[in-house]
Nucleic acid binder design. Sequence first.
DNA 1: ACCCAGGGTAACT
DNA 2: AGTTACCATGGG
Length: 265
Amino acid sequence: MKFEINCSCLNLKQTLFCGQCFRFKEIGDNMFEGIALDKYVRLRQLEKGIEIETDEKDLPFWESYFDLELDYDKLMESFCRDETLKKACEGRKIRVLRQEPFETLISFIISQNNNIKRITGIIDRLCECFGQKIEGGYAFPTPKAMEKLTPEDLAPLRAGFRAKYIADAVQKVTSGKVDFEEIQKMPNAEAREALKTIKGVGDKVADCVLLFGLHRLAAVPKDVWIKRINARYYPDGYPDCMGEYAGIAQQYLFDFARNDADFSG
DNA sequence: ACCCAGGGTAACT
DNA sequence: AGTTACCATGGG
């Protein structure tokens, strides 16, 4: 069934392809399809919102996924008090999605020292090999479905040295040593340390899981692009207007750095 | 052939 | 505490 949703600040193309999620494709003019966890969806960009094509029972899932409750107009107004951030927000309507923690963890372990195109390919193969077949493709594999996998079993993914990290992450999650419900109760610094007990998870990947998987909007993953932004524009730290939403600001700065800002010199 | 990619680890000073 | 080689793979 198709549902029209009115909402501000949601450009699908920008939101789905800004490096926070890896399972969507553009299938036509302003048309997209993809899978999150075990749910397939088709999306269309409207002038003042989006059209969601999905089973009626899954509509609340997708409304939550796009975090439609959060007032981005108010946020943008605040961000624009900073000159650099104002430039970064110009022409961008990106929402930070509410993704599932395990899928986010595995995805961003794969992301380390890697590029978005290849990350997407590895995740595609992961889902085809170990995920359940569903309408439109393959679900992201559950921790249980991956429980016994060794790094050798993961060889078909061609994830390179990250295979052993994936295996350790699965082991920590299935054993309960890493428990997302417990981590969600912790303050940011403590939650980050808990995630870092996983092999191959450092500050950056942990912050990605906090921001994209646990919706901790103050978390700022510092990848190479954000480091360039920080060195040039924020050598003395971030302005107050980012506040508790610095993670969202970060997503605009990241896309700005990759597409608009000139870092040639 | 060389360099880089939404980094982290281990082994050094 | 701060640097550095190395880790697989694929694209420019």
